[in-house]
Amino acid sequence: MDASTPRQLWLLALANFVIGMGAFVVVGVLSPLAQAFGVTRPEAGALMSVYAGTYAVASPLLVAATGRLDRRLLLVLGLGLFGLGALAAALAPSFGWLLAARALMALGGGLVTPVAASVGVVLAGPGRQGQALAIVFGGLTLAQVLGVPAGAWLGYAFGWASALAVVAALALLGLLAVAAALPRGIRVPVASLASLAGVLRSGRRMGAVAFTALFIGALYVCYTFLAPLLETLYGLSRDGVTGMLALFGLGAVAGNAMGGRLTDRIGPRWTLVLLCLAQAVLMPALTLPTWPLAVVGALIFVWSVFAWSFMVPQQARLAALDPVQLPVLFALNASAIYVGATLGSALGGAVLKGPGLHALGLFGAALMALAFASLAAGR
C-alpha cells in the first residue's frame, strides 16, 4: 500500500457516503413525503422498494457489461446518474415522477458501490483487504451517522425536497473529487456477462450471496418504518426522530469497526452467526414492548451495532470464496442488499397494514431465522 492509497480509499468512502445518504434518506422523511403527495406511509415505502428493486436487477448487469471500461470513468458516470436522479426527485411534481427518479438514482448507485469495493481491494493489496473494505464501506456507515439524520432534519424543517437537493449537490462534489484525484487505469479482475452467468449458475456462490438478501431483508422490516414507529408509539417529531436516527448512525460506525475486529479474531462465518442470533433477540425487543425513551435509544444503538457489523465479514467471506470473480460477486452482493431491502420493506408494509407496528420485530426475527438457516446450509 503506497502513500497515496489511504487518501484514495477515503475518496471511495466519500462516493459511498453520497450513495448511502441518497439511498436511505427517504427513511427519515417518509412521513413528510406521504403527506406531501397524499399517500399512506406504507405506500410511501415504495420509494425504498423501487430504488432497491432497480438496483438489484441493474447493478450486476451494468458492472458486467462495463467490465472493460476504466474504473474512474465508471465512478464518475455512476455519481453523475445518481446526482441527476436526486435532482429530478427534488423537483418531482408527482409521486409517479418521484418513483421514476428513484429508479434513475438506483442505476447510478448500482455502478458506484460495487466498483468502489473492487477498486479498494485492488488498491490495498493482499493482507489489507479487510482494512480497505472497512474504510470504503465506512462511507455508507457515515451516511447513517450524518447523512440520514441530517436529511431527516432538513425534510421536517424545509420540506422533503431539500434533503434530495442536498444529495444532488453532494453527488456533484463527489464526482469532481473522483475525477480529480483517482488515477486512471486501475486494474481489477475483468467482469463480463459470461462471468456473471457463471456465478449465477453456481449454487454455492449464489447461496453465499442470498444470505445478504435475507439478513438485510430482516433488518428492513423494522428499519423502513422506524420513523413512523417513533412518531406513533413515542410521539416524537422532527428533532426526536433525527436524534434517534443519529443514534442508529453512531451504532453503524461502531458496528463497522466491530465487524472488522470480529472477522479478524473469529473468522467471517462465526461473526455472521453471532450477528444473526443477536438480531433475532434485538428486533422483537425493540418493537414488541413500549419502553421509556432512554431504553429505546439504547436499543436502537445496539441494534445498529449488530446490524452494521455485517458488511465486512460478508465481503471477506465472498472475497475468500472466489477471488477471480470478485467484481461480479461484489456487484451481486450489493444487489442482494437491495433485494433484501425490497423484501423487508414490502413485508414491513404488509405487517403495518395487518398486525401493526408492534409486530414488526417478530416478523423481522422470523426472516433472520431464514438467514441463519442459509448460513448453516452454506457450510
Rank of each mutant, 00 (worst) to 15 (best):
L321D: 04
G297W: 00
M283T: 08
W97H: 14
A369Y: 08
W308F: 13
I266F: 15
W97Q: 06
A254V: 15
T287Q: 00
S192P: 11
M1E: 09
Q144K: 05
P189I: 04
I300H: 01
G151S: 04
G255D: 13
N256M: 13
F24Y: 14
G80C: 06
S195A: 08
A252I: 10
A163R: 02
G378D: 13
V253W: 11
P6V: 11
L226N: 01
N256Q: 11
A359F: 05
G80M: 05
A252Q: 13
L33Y: 03
G22Y: 02
V136G: 00
G344C: 08
A376R: 13
L200R: 13
P268F: 10
A86P: 05
F301I: 08
A350Y: 11
A90I: 07
L172G: 13
A106C: 04
W97S: 14
A194Y: 05
G20P: 02
G259H: 11
L293W: 02
L175W: 10
G267M: 09
T232I: 11
A194C: 05
L299Y: 03
I337T: 14
F158K: 13
A132V: 04
G67D: 00
Q325L: 07
G349K: 05
S195I: 00
A177R: 08
V145P: 05
R269S: 10
S202D: 12
P42G: 07
L274C: 13
A169T: 10
T212K: 09
W270Q: 14
F301P: 00
G78I: 04
G259I: 12
P228L: 03
I300P: 00
P183M: 10
A208Q: 12
A13Q: 03
G125L: 11
A213T: 06
V296I: 08
L84V: 15
F158W: 15
A92H: 11
F363R: 00
L343G: 06
T66Q: 03
T271F: 10
V112A: 04
L81S: 03
Q314G: 02
Y51K: 08
L277A: 14
A168T: 12
A88G: 12
R379P: 08
T287R: 02
P189T: 07
G185C: 10
A92L: 09
G243V: 02
Y220E: 03
A254Q: 05
A373P: 02
A65V: 01
M368A: 12
V296D: 01
F158M: 14
S118M: 11
P42N: 03
L299S: 09
P183T: 09
V136K: 01
A294L: 15
V241P: 07
Q8P: 03
